[in-house]
Amino acid sequence: MKRILFLILLSSQLLSAQRPLSAQAEISLITCGPGQNELYSAFGHSAVRVKDPAQNIDWVFNYGIFDFDQPNFYLNFARGHLLYMLAVSDWQRFQYGYRREGRYVHEQVLDLDSLQAQAYFEFLWTNARPENRDYYYDYFYDNCATRVRDGLELAMGEGQVKFKDSTFYQPSLSIRELCDEYLEYQPWGDLGIDLCLGLPMDKQADARIEMFLPDLLEAAFAEALIKDEQGTRPLVKESRVVYPQIAKPQKSWWRPLVFFSALFVIGGLLSWLYFKKPKTLRLFDALVFGISGLLGLLLLILWLFTDHKAAAYNFNILLFLPTHLLLIPSILRGKFAAWMMAYLKFMPIFYAVLLLTWFWLPQQLHMGLMPFAMLLMLRTWHLSRHGKSA
């Protein structure tokens, strides 16, 4: 909170009076490497540096600031109304945090003439003012990277900045596959994203969508062109490694596939030991079906009752059926109504079909959840065979 207040106060002080840039001014795209301390840092970060020695300016315009203490933060986050802001900080203070974490900092100096540099600076200046700095964050279409690109295009004028149409990855990847590339060291974060975000994540990313990732924005800037009355020239005139990558993250063996495989083995052993006494496993079954049903209910709420666009049409609901919650009272009693027995007899077939079609569904489901689907298939089959009718 103190850091957020400092940035807000610093922004207000820096923007207290507008300053024209001198001929020595440089505007750069800053790209910061991924970090593995938090999920949100795993994708890296983008910002804009404005340096003008003649004006004693060396500022960073940073679209990646949010405040945990903003009113109704957690409610707004759950509803998809997460408010971010554009803040201004001193360059040395900005880069210090990334140096401390051993994350690289790259700088690309833009080849803007004095009028273009002034136009972009004034755009950033205006957007950093208190009445303009807040915006509603979107993971893939309106974030710290896309705001840098969009602001440059608006400031420069239509058609003056030309990005390549071809994607960085050939063949192109889906948004989900792009995220997977950055979550190799965050297996549980990867599971959370794959679980909570639905079919929109499986859209093929074109060259423009790819730029939601900071290092792909850096790659796009490296190949972009400026087309103006002076002719055509590269957007970037100089690239610098301000600080190299030092941190070397380690992969963890404790991954979702390991956990759910172990859970399936435990469930299989219990089912064998108490093959004709499923009532003995009622607490285990209540936990398994309760968690499954609650997760399904959460996914349904994210889809239907929030503005998280990427959470829509989530095929994970086929695995985590909210209707499993209806089984809990009967599981604890050890007796099932006739319709519940029919439900239990249908579920093994349902899960068998889901497992057989797992890799051909429109949405890419997380492979680590396959053992959990197998566990649900096993336990519904066991209950349907040896459960008692009410």
Rank of each mutant, 00 (worst) to 15 (best):
M347D: 01
A247G: 01
Y137H: 12
S166I: 13
Y169G: 08
L287T: 15
L83Q: 15
N143M: 09
M377Q: 13
H324Q: 12
R19Q: 15
L7D: 10
D142F: 06
D69T: 14
F43M: 09
A87Q: 06
L297D: 07
L257K: 12
I328H: 09
Q95V: 11
L294T: 14
K276N: 11
K203Y: 06
D90Y: 07
E177S: 09
G157K: 06
L235S: 01
N314E: 03
I331M: 07
G268S: 15
R333M: 08
Y141T: 14
P249N: 07
G97K: 08
F372M: 12
L199S: 04
K279H: 12
D228H: 03
F73D: 11
L173R: 08
L281T: 05
W360H: 03
F372C: 02
L86I: 07
F66W: 03
L332V: 13
T167P: 01
G368P: 00
T306H: 06
A23W: 00
L375Y: 00
L83I: 15
I349S: 08
K277A: 14
M156R: 06
L14N: 10
R147V: 05
Q245F: 00
F315V: 01
L319H: 04
R255S: 10
Q230M: 02
W303P: 04
L216W: 02
F260G: 05
P214A: 11
D134P: 00
T126H: 11
I331L: 14
L83H: 12
Y243V: 06
Q36Y: 09
G387S: 06
M377S: 13
L375G: 02
K276M: 09
W91M: 05
S89G: 14
L178P: 01
M347A: 10
G198D: 08
Y185S: 09
P171V: 05
Q116G: 09
L319D: 01
S389R: 14
V109Q: 02
W360I: 12
I27V: 15
Y185Q: 12
Q92L: 14
M374Q: 10
N37G: 13
